[in-house]
Design a binder for these strands. Structure first.
Length: 319
DNA sequence: CGACTTTGACCAGCGC
DNA sequence: GCGCTGGTCAAAGTCG
């Protein structure tokens, strides 16, 4: 596949460490991965969520998101293939160490397409066969061919996508929504298949892909596409509603927490910690992820239950 | 019986 | 034009 004008973000759950750049082939695409340092992020400026909801996500937005400035050391951008905007910043050394709690972000931005980027909303694309408003979930068998015919002449546009790279034994990360698997494909250059899921809520066209990294089989790449147009299902598997505080399950000022990272951004103390991190120090004691911090600070008792619903990225045990 | 998964087939886009 | 690959469909199977 090539660039279709989507925008990907890769969030590797945990504390932000450094922005570092590397390039890797992922799912047939060559993506640029960014490891983002906590010290390089100014959450008071713009959150990841803000960033993702931004309708004009581009290099500038990413700068804002990560609190970067073009004048910062080792910040640069490049354009690849004429329509990709790249950036990099390397702030400080790797003294924070390890891969624990690192954010990996990919910007795969198309400058050409995506006008006002209805991409952030549903209606825009659906140039793809599926999703059609009427076709809805199932039944619309005519949708298969009908949509394909309709596709002709239309430029393919994609929902904004972003992925979470998490260390997890299980492929399916519990995010509070219910998903129906609708396909599975072998991935080129990878022994692990990629699974395709669709949100089971009617008229919600959010999709996600789940695949295990062949480079690091312990990590799972979950790619979300689109935004939920509905609240979290009341009947959550693993009773997430009982574990997360109301503030994490109710719509945020910018909308409801459609994705785990949104939950993350709504976690109490998250911003506080980000802002008050001691220079050079670890943002979260003992390399705990924000969620771990949250769990610890709130002394959530039932770890086993948490494990059921929270990716191990958030619940990694310390020896 | 409904919801969900599995799996082979199909199609479109892309590169050669 | 052809082959490869990603993405999706839908029938059949499975599960609770």
């Amino acid at each position: 596949m090539s660039d279709h004008g989507f925008r990907d973000f890769y969030y590797h759950g945990g504390a932000f460490n450094n922005i570092d750049h590397d390039q890797q082939s992922y799912g047939g695409e060559t993506d640029h991965m960014y490891r983002v340092s906590s010290s390089s992020i100014d959450p008071s400026y713009m959150s990841f969520t803000d960033c993702l909801h931004s309708t004009s996500m581009d290099y500038g937005s990413l700068e804002k998101a990560f609190g970067l400035s073009p004048s910062s050391s080792e910040v640069f951008s490049s354009v690849e293939g004429g329509n990709r905007t790249m950036m990099k910043q390397h702030v400080g050394a790797d003294e924070l160490g390890g891969n624990t709690g690192e954010v990996t972000a990919t910007l795969n931005s198309s400058v050409s397409s995506s006008s006002s980027e209805a991409g952030c909303e549903e209606d825009s694309d659906k140039s793809k066969k599926d999703g059609q408003p009427k076709g809805s979930d199932d039944g619309g068998e005519s949708s298969k061919k009908g949509n394909k015919a309709k596709m002709k002449g239309e430029k393919k546009q994609r929902e904004p996508r972003f992925a979470f790279v998490t260390k997890s034994e299980v492929d399916q990360l519990e995010d509070g929504y219910r998903w129906r698997k609708y396909g599975q494909k072998a991935v080129k250059n990878s022994p692990y298949p990629r699974s395709y899921y669709r949100c089971t809520t009617q008229k919600c066209t959010v999709k996600k892909r789940v695949e295990r990294s062949f480079q690091d089989p312990s990590t799972v790449i979950t790619t979300y596409e689109g935004q939920h147009n509905h609240p979290l299902p009341t009947t959550l598997r693993g009773s997430a509603a009982g574990l997360f505080p109301p503030s994490m399950l109710t719509p945020s000022p910018m909308g409801r927490p459609s994705f785990p990272h949104e939950l993350l951004m709504q976690m109490p103390n998250y911003h506080h910690q980000m802002n008050n991190q001691a220079p050079g120090g670890s943002m979260f004691a003992e390399n705990f992820s924000p969620f771990q911090q949250y769990v610890h600070q709130h002394q959530v008792p039932d770890y086993g239950l948490l494990q059921d619903m929270v990716p191990s990225t958030f619940l990694k045990h310390e020896p």
